[in-house]
Amino acid sequence: MKDFDTYRRRFVTSVLGIAATTALPVGVMFWQTAQGKEVDDSPASSKIRWGMLVDTTKCATGCNACVSACNKENGISGEVTDTSPQWIRKVNVTNPENGYSFTLPMMCQHCEEPPCVDVCPTGASFKRADGIVLVDRHICIGCRYCMMACPYKARSFIHQPVEDQLAEVPRGQGCVESCTFCVQRIDAGQQTTACQDACNAEGHQAIFFGDLKDPESSISKQLATYGAKEVLPDLNLHTGVRYQGI
């Protein structure tokens, strides 16, 4: 009888011990969830999904207006060395068999299932509720894993100290960055990106930007009429940036 008591005591103690040990992380998780309540009326909400459509048939070879505008808007130097950041670049594509070629601007595609978000160890690379994929530079530790993971090679690493950054676009050494869909403009209420404005100013009208979830927006209407393709569609990333004519 005594042995059974001892056995029972030990059993209950160990079960309680296991329960207490598992309760701790679970409790912390619940507490954290409670602390991090989502603010429902935050401006960036999932009711919107920002997207971009590029009509490559209108994109002119040799024109770099979108690139220059992006550099100016975000305080990037515009240098073209192997260590300088490039948020957007013009890519020239040629079919080697028949010489058919086209050009298009390539930037962060703001995927719906971003590989860069999956691999970031701290969660600094994240997708905002409104679909914009960003790097939270407060948390980025500069491991560059997201740069390895991006199939579009969209991300850049800042290799040296930055002076004279713009107040609206903080950038500094040691973090990774990429196209933000001009998030500083969007948060301030403007609904166009710098590249779009520059392309329109040049008269090419190749870039559309807007809310993919709003069927009345110009981008949705364009997509419904003419359709579009993603770059690397087989990866199933459901990018926010689509192209016509590729």
Binding site: V39, S42, P43, R128, D136, H138, E168, D187, A188
Partner: peptide
């Protein structure tokens, strides 16, 4: 504020 600016899209200037 850095959470509301970066993650919630609050207007930094206002």
């Amino acid at each position: 504020h850095r959470i509301s600016a970066v993650h919630h899209g609050d207007n930094q200037l206002a």
